[in-house]
Design a protein around this nucleic acid. Structure first.
Lengths: 136, 136
DNA sequence: AATAAATACTATCAAATTGATAGGATATAT
DNA sequence: ATATATCCTATCAATTTGATAGTATTTATT
């Protein structure tokens, strides 16, 4: 399962992509209201996305958030990795968050292969999806 | 990520499938030693698998565990669902642990479709794998 | 300069989950 | 009887999850 936080992040980005018309930035409170996301929690998430160079923010009146890149250049995997960390089901098959398992030698691990396959099939789907493709 | 508990469960079952020769049941302590799994933690896991009718146990001297069914009839998905619960990435696309999301109407959810695809690709891999196929 | 309105930041928190450990009860083969 | 295995209950520390509260800072407008 992905976390609520990650689900909120994706939905917020899709909302921003949809309503960022160039003139006005998208406000936290609008996203929170429209997408039923707790506002203060959403603040943390959006700040997190800004710190990871997905969003830019503008403070003060008429402030809000904008995508830092075109929506078609933001993949779902990138967001999921920022918010939740590894996508793989085992640390030892993670491409971006690799860790070896303490208890086993990888060469002789019986289950590593299966979870590599799961990882590859999963990434085939997720790598193809962008914030843009979700707004359509 | 699957939990350590789930990883241990799968490895233990593969070990049991490999060393259950019909005459002697497989002991917790042997599995724990050979697979580097904390023994007391493994006890809980094996009891859990027994309560879910994956294993049968024999107490006392020469006791231990055996598969209740042939290894080729125990799928990876079944074990993962027993130990970790849902396999899907969103509650609203889970086949066995469905829950609706509080914050959105499913009909208009922008992200549900993607995670249905991930679920299907994941299950394509996992449904085909059994404890037997992992011992080979 | 004052004000309203937005994000930024820090701190905190409760509940659930994870990953175990400890110790005694019970069953069984010898 | 005894040794040895599972069974059961309780407990625990650390981490993660999902948030909330309150204040500081920035900015547009009047």
């Amino acid at each position: 399962m992905i976390s609520n936080k990650c689900k909120y992040a994706i939905k917020a980005l899709v909302y921003i992509a949809k309503y960022d018309n160039g003139s006005k930035a998208v406000m936290t409170s609008d996203i929170a209201r429209e997408q039923n996301i707790p506002r203060k929690f959403l603040e943390i998430i959006l700040r997190d996305l800004r710190n990871n160079r997905i969003l830019e923010s503008k403070r003060g009146k008429d402030g809000g958030f904008r995508l830092l890149r075109p929506a078609e250049d933001i993949s779902l995997t990138e967001i999921m990795r920022i918010i939740d960390g590894p996508i793989a089901m085992l640390p030892c098959v993670s491409l971006n968050y690799y860790r070896s398992c303490d208890e086993c030698e990888e060469e002789s691990c019986e289950i590593k292969g299966v979870f590599e396959q799961v990882r590859d099939r999963t990434l085939e789907v997720l790598n193809g999806k962008t914030i843009k493709s979700l707004t359509l």
